[in-house]
Nucleic acid binder design. Structure first.
Lengths: 341, 341
DNA sequence: CTGAAAGCGCTAACAA
DNA sequence: TTGTTAGCGCTTTCAG
């Protein structure tokens, strides 16, 4: 019998039914500290519930310039650890009364700008952004922040900018990972990363360099595309010193590595120890893929970013700061987990 | 020098600058077919752009009861083919001027109700829903649809309900998959599925039964949890007839199957042919996992739902119907792709 | 052709 | 303690 929608009933419908003013109803429903007859208060609450009253959020936003909504902007919600991160954020925010507008910037500055503009049009209260192209829109984000919208950088941080951020302590994690390789007996260490750099990726590179000698010729950069990785690594794997190890900036580089391993007969982790960030994605239906995966002859440690904690921090920062703008937070670098066999 | 936000400027700011009424500006910006001096029109357009005018969507919604937003509700945006489906939907909708509110119902009716209510509060123009608990909230969805919000079922359909839907032709795909097993020489066919049934899953079961003999004792149902699957399958794999094959309702059942295979020494696809729906997720860092994966000795065909086409259909249905409510669409069952080696 | 004015549902300042 | 009222920014009649 419930009827959540039935001809969008409004504040004044309740007011009418109960016999009070809309103000009274508004005050009660928002439990403002305004004294009102306890009987009436109860009655209002009751009828509102019975009628399944739902405030018209458009009207609320118009009046208050707050939308009870948060925009999330990521390059691609299907990659890396983003799906899990976003899901946790959504759940946490919703339980705090915020709805979530999720946007894919495709890691493209112009696209990100459009999304940001649209979100501002909607008066989102806050933004959780993984800035595209390593922060190309920082000036815009700064303006948005100045205009009163809370801006939080997630996953990535922008040095020299004053945005609050929640990220992984990538340097420490990379150091730990590299150390693991060294302790496993690796003498010659390679680093495979993306060509396009930004601080978070440089942290990883830096962390590895902290822990082990990294010859300049052992730093291999290329676009994170399977074929490119494959090609890039072939010559390296062909003349692989004994006791080699490779650090993957992200495990989305793994398929290409395995392709090259297949073509050169290098088994992992037997002949080449390996460790990398983020959940690897393996498909099992293509014979070609399969023959690559077969080069994996044992478990491979993975550096798993702690998305749960990151999402918690992000949600807490947003909700608490929005409720109480004078709250102070310090940027967060969450420790990653080294998943060993 | 752009300033997308600077003290939310409004229609009247432009009107003031140009020296016309807000009406004129509004009409021009929405290119209403209202005749207006061509010089003024140009000037208005120009200043609006120069000032980076953005309409206040809250005000628009309030007036029009339309939000230029679509709600997407899925059980869990990280599982199965949902990440890709949602991403494509988001991209397609945004390019049509709609923003996207993504919600995780956690496959829980009460949670879904909350999300739906919140979305309605916001006057979303349409909903793309993967109904939780197999459609427990159908009555609510019906009411929402009656109240004028476009409701589309995605992935799942609800028989007896009149919602438009976009789904996979699961019956045909399952039939094809089962046929493939039969042609590969499978004599004894097993079906492994979830305990909780709904039409989409029953279609898959039906499709398999269409193509091959499926003894009642060969239909294995259990919760889609790795440990349960493991346990459920142990006795079966222990006494596995020669020429066996197993159809997985979803490849998220695969890890459990492989665990059981490891414990019983059954190799796949050597001793047990296998095929299943949806992208499998394999982790590689746990020794335990790894020993399970090692039971996979060759590529395994996968039934890949065509999320691109589904998303296209869904986005088209929503945008076209919203633009032109008299448009007529027929529910869609998209063919899945059998990914063979 | 163009502009003034009403009002969407809600909140907050002000009267009573 | 309560009710009346004036907008929030926009669209949309309806006069001019």
């Amino acid at each position: 019998m419930s009827s959540i929608d039935a001809g969008p009933l409004g504040l004044k419908d309740i007011a009418g039914k109960v016999g009070v003013s809309t103000t009274a109803v508004s005050n009660v429903l928002n439990n403002k500290p305004i004294r009102i007859g306890d009987a009436k208060r109860r009655l209002i609450l009751h009828t509102a519930r019975a009628l399944h009253y739902r405030p018209n959020l458009a009207a609320c936003s118009l009046k208050s310039k707050k939308a009870r909504a948060i925009g999330i902007v990521v390059p691609d919600m299907t990659t890396l650890h983003y799906p899990e991160l976003i899901r946790r954020l959504e759940v946490a925010l919703f339980s705090n009364g915020y709805q979530t507008l999720i946007c894919n910037s495709q890691d493209d500055g112009a696209c990100e700008r459009e999304h940001l503009a649209a979100l501002c049009s909607r008066f989102v209260d806050g933004l959780a952004v993984v800035p595209a192209e390593g922060g190309i829109n920082a000036p815009l984000l700064r303006r948005i922040a100045n205009s009163g919208t809370l801006v939080l950088c997630v996953d990535i941080y922008l040095p020299k900018e004053r945005f609050h951020y929640v990220t992984t302590d990538g340097r420490a994690a990379a150091r730990e990972g590299a150390l693991w390789l060294v302790n496993a007996g690796v003498k010659k260490l390679y680093y495979l990363g993306e060509r396009r750099r930004h601080p978070v990726l440089d942290d990883r590179l830096g962390g590895v360099a902290d822990a082990a000698r990294l010859d300049p010729d052992a730093i291999l950069l290329c676009p994170p595309v399977r074929e490119h990785v494959h090609e890039r690594l072939l010559p390296v794997l062909r003349r692989l010193p004994a006791g080699s190890g490779i650090f993957l900036e992200s495990n989305r580089l793994l398929p290409g590595l395995l392709d090259a391993a297949r073509d050169t007969g290098v088994t992992l982790p037997g002949r080449l120890r390996v460790i990398g960030f983020d959940p690897p994605v393996l498909t099992i239906h293509r014979a070609k893929d399969f023959s690559s995966w077969r080069m994996l002859t044992g478990p491979v440690p993975v550096i798993r970013q702690d998305v749960a904690t990151m999402a918690d921090h992000a949600a807490e920062y947003l909700t608490v700061t929005l409720a109480n703008p004078s709250a102070r937070f310090v940027p967060v670098r969450v420790a990653a987990e080294l998943c060993l066999p």
